[in-house]
């Protein structure tokens, strides 16, 4: 048994090395590491989608991380996905949970996720969470960024406009404006628009 496990670990190590070159680490190979298999099984037992966790493990091997680090990252992602799922309930998709977990990783508190869900219960928050994460990565204070995204969710602006808003802020920051100032300028610009009768009709989803 020990010999079999050892050979599987060697295979995993070799697969990880090969992954550097070009290949892909299969689910079976990931499970050759018993500790990692335990983490994946734990996620399944918690009702989480397996694909993003396996993808995160593969990413680690492709980036040359050791097995211990890969296990740790998968465990942390599992915990964040559980926290995101709880905060975003009722969730609309597995991807929404993953986007919530990414936001948590960048320092967005779970309370902000709950607040966004309370603002918009009918629509998936995948893109809103992505834009929020983008703003936070750009050093816009979390509460300011969350407040602006919340305002836009309240106005039911389209995702295209949300993304354009995030990119506009990034452009302003790149141009030298302080993150908060850039956010103010952009939010005034977007929110002072009329109700976008034409663009809104095309870009926004029909009311449900």
């Amino acid at each position: 048994m020990m010999l079999r496990r050892l050979s599987l670990l060697v295979a995993l190590s070799l697969a990880a090395t090969a992954a550097h070159a070009q290949g892909r680490v299969s689910s079976e190979m990931l499970r050759a590491d018993a500790a990692l298999a335990y983490e994946l099984d734990r996620a399944v037992a918690l009702g989480l989608p397996l694909a993003p966790l396996e993808a995160k493990a593969r990413e680690g091997y492709l980036k040359g991380a050791g097995t211990v680090r890969v296990r740790e990252v998968v465990r942390q992602l599992t915990d964040r996905m559980v926290e995101a799922r709880d905060a975003l309930a009722p969730v609309h998709s597995a991807n929404e949970i993953l986007e919530g977990a990414k936001a948590l990783q960048q320092g967005v508190p779970a309370s902000v996720l709950r607040s966004l869900r309370a603002t918009q219960r009918e629509r998936s928050l995948e893109v809103s969470l992505g834009v929020l994460t983008e703003l936070v990565v750009r050093k816009v204070p979390v509460q300011r960024a969350a407040a602006e995204v919340t305002k836009m969710l309240q106005r039911n602006v389209s995702e295209t406009i949300l993304i354009a808003f995030g990119r506009g802020v990034q452009g302003d920051i790149s141009a030298g404006l302080a993150p908060t100032v850039a956010l103010d300028i952009r939010s005034r610009g977007v929110l002072s628009l009329p109700q976008l009768p034409l663009a809104g009709a095309v870009l926004s989803p029909p009311p449900r």
Binding site: G60, V73, L77, V127, G130, S158, I163, S204
Partner: peptide, 23 residues
């Protein structure tokens, strides 16, 4: 042109948001 994010493995990447096809 993208904001930089450091992932759990220590690598630096650009972050880009993709909209849902319907919206």
């Amino acid at each position: 042109n993208l904001p930089v994010v450091v992932d759990e493995y220590g690598a630096r990447s650009g972050l880009i948001v993709i909209p849902d096809r319907a919206r």
